[in-house]
Design a protein around this nucleic acid. Sequence first.
DNA 1: CGTACTTTTGAATCGCATCAAATCTGGTGG
DNA 2: CCACCAGATTTGATGCGATTCAAAAGTACG
Lengths: 211, 211
Amino acid sequence: MLSNLASNQWKAISMQFSTVAHVPAILRESASFVACEAGETIFRVGDPVRRAMLVLSGEVRLIRRDPNGREVILQRSTGGFIAEASLDSRVYHCDALAAQTCTLLVFPAKAFLAALDEDVAFRRAWQSLLAREVRKLRSQCERLSLNSAADRILHYIQAEGNNGTLSLTQSKKAWAAELGLTHEALYRTLRRMQDEGALQVDGHQWCVCSK
Amino acid sequence: MLSNLASNQWKAISMQFSTVAHVPAILRESASFVACEAGETIFRVGDPVRRAMLVLSGEVRLIRRDPNGREVILQRSTGGFIAEASLDSRVYHCDALAAQTCTLLVFPAKAFLAALDEDVAFRRAWQSLLAREVRKLRSQCERLSLNSAADRILHYIQAEGNNGTLSLTQSKKAWAAELGLTHEALYRTLRRMQDEGALQVDGHQWCVCSK
DNA sequence: CGTACTTTTGAATCGCATCAAATCTGGTGG
DNA sequence: CCACCAGATTTGATGCGATTCAAAAGTACG
């Protein structure tokens, strides 16, 4: 864990995450790296919120368990801030798990909030991040309201892909969970859609065929 | 339509909507009321975002239509801001319909954004509003991922009600849409749960019975 | 090379969607 | 005040599609 980051590191990270480009100098000084092993718990429900966190590499999942013990993925991040909405909460309302070995960029929550008050550009970037998140979640709710597996798949490719083509960055099993389907249903529906010519596959690229 | 609001009106509105209490004086001066009739379209997909809007009375629904023409409710508001996340967008990405006769409090978008830059308390209130919205949407995604009607109903009552009791402010048909169910499925499941003693009903009050 | 996990296919079951129709409700106008 | 209408509510019958349980094959990793 480093308590200080070199300026070229900031440049590289800022290239990848536009919000980071707006992090003011004072806040940068209090940033540090954290490494997590696959399977590690990053925080749990009820833990006090002390840090703002950004996934640099690997994958983090925010999950909650339903009464039957099945886990529901609330957020899945392979890059970018996690639990943004918890920053103004006292405690977390979900668990965070490292799905793979991860590196995180962390900021003390207090300093982060103070910087939001001080720096206009940073504040704007943060607000636009939250707004994007709201739109993305509304889109996900819209998708989960569709009751056929095929419709959810098409909706996902349209919403998360580029111009009808999706580059899948996760296992199909994880994708199924995000779509609110069992993995069996996803496998079968993808197969059927390929057979019917509604989808084309090329490696990890999934492409909608408009007839 | 009034172009200026009396100070006692502000007090009344601020009592009901805490975010409004933080609206700075300059922004207040540019606020006005708008009345909408039931069924009226407030804005459409693609319309430029010119105003921030708050529902004072009546009901507004943000909807999108799926390829089959069925409408999906993205947000339903009987009080409070609507389309908060669109404020930093150029155009709207959904339709807004007045489900009943409504009165809205509207602000020019430009002045609203400027006030967010100027006033710290207002900005904090707004950011916390967005964060609450994110949490609420995550909760809805969690609920829509449950595949039994009974589980969704219980989840809704726990999440949206107080301590296991929900006061229903909408028709059961609208509730069904919010739960991602057909109204028939909701009616039947509610009936079954009452018969089984899992739910108690008293007028519009729905109460979960822990056995 | 073995272990853990994902991917894939099969068969049976169940719950929700769908279509249909009757009843109830609130609001409107004669 | 009553007739009427649109919408919500409710019940019924049917079929489909996703879940569930099961098992086999493929894949990554130490």
